[in-house]
Simulated assay, not measured.
Amino acid sequence: MRTPDVSDPRIRRRLIAAAAAGVVFLILAGIGIYGLITGPRTTTGTDDPTGSEPSSTAPETPGSTTTPRLPSVPRSDDPETFARNVAEALFTWDTASGFFPLDYTSVILDVGDPSGTERAGLASDVAAHLPAREAWLELRKYLTTQHLTIETIFVPEAWDTAVEQARPGQLAEGTTAYTIEGTRHREGFWNDEPVTSEHAVSFTVFIVCPPDGDDCHLLRLSQLDNPLK
């Protein structure tokens, strides 16, 4: 097999293009964001991609004619504002509310990509950020609540690099990423005494904001404490 002549401008351009595509793949696939680079997937059947955990319904207030619902994620056509809204909704929960993790997952999925391309992956991402059902039931004994204080939010350099090196059409127009750093606050009761804890967290949200001015949508989430830098 003859070794390619890298001095040939045409061969050099092919090698550079291949290397650039490889960098984008490593940045995105390395954190599990396969759908952003592989395009839409087709699904069949009626399996629920969010998992088998049954959704709960919070007890109704006597005399109430409506079923209580969790607050929806505020929509926005501004990327940073939307990223903040998603982050705060993701980390805000109350184990004594009568809802379960799947209910909180559903709230996040409501602002996901309406095409459904990333729904299964996003559901898995959200579940990884929430307590498992068994842990939730244990936390409920202590009336545990949680919320997030955002300290910094920025578009990571790694994402800028990915966009610069992406091939035309590889990323949907308006797709961006925000890395969020903040503090997770938990409050509860132990032996009838209030207790609190704080923990630094960081993660990246991948969103798409259509250039026509429509509301942004959430695509995927990075692993907790493994954000793009």
Rank of each mutant, 00 (worst) to 15 (best):
R13D: 10
H185S: 11
V107G: 11
I33D: 12
A166C: 04
A17L: 01
T179W: 01
D103P: 01
L221K: 09
Y34V: 12
G30M: 13
L139Q: 13
G51F: 00
S55N: 11
R140I: 01
T44C: 02
L102M: 07
R140E: 15
V201R: 12
Q146C: 12
L109A: 12
T57F: 01
E181T: 14
G174M: 05
G116K: 00
L36M: 15
S124Y: 00
A135Y: 00
C209L: 05
N85T: 07
K141H: 10
S202K: 12
L143Y: 06
T61M: 04
F154T: 12
I37F: 04
T204I: 07
A58K: 02
T50H: 01
G35M: 02
A123T: 06
F206D: 03
S56Y: 03
T81G: 11
E118G: 08
S202D: 08
R119N: 03
T176W: 00
I150G: 09
Y104P: 10
T179R: 03
G32T: 07
D215G: 06
V107P: 10
L228F: 09
N85H: 14
S72Y: 00
E134P: 03
W190N: 12
E193H: 06
G51M: 06
P40S: 13
G39W: 03
M1N: 08
G39S: 10
F203T: 09
E157S: 12
A172M: 08
L219E: 13
P101Q: 08
D214V: 02
V195M: 11
G182K: 06
H217K: 06
A58N: 03
A200L: 03
R84N: 14
A158D: 15
A83T: 01
Y178V: 02
R69H: 06
A158C: 05
T161M: 06
E187N: 15
L139S: 08
G39Q: 11
L218Q: 09
P59H: 05
G98P: 08
A19E: 13
E151K: 14
C209D: 02
W190L: 13
T43C: 02
L130P: 14
F206R: 01
T196M: 12
T105H: 05
E118L: 14
T175H: 03
S55P: 03
P49T: 08
T117M: 00
V107H: 04
T175E: 08
C216R: 03
E181F: 02
P54K: 07
T204N: 10
T161D: 09
R13T: 13
V205M: 05
A158Q: 15
D113Y: 02
W190I: 04
V195Y: 04
L109I: 15
R186M: 13
A166Q: 08
F82W: 01
E157T: 14
T105K: 04
G116W: 00
P9S: 04
Y104H: 12
T57A: 09
A58P: 11
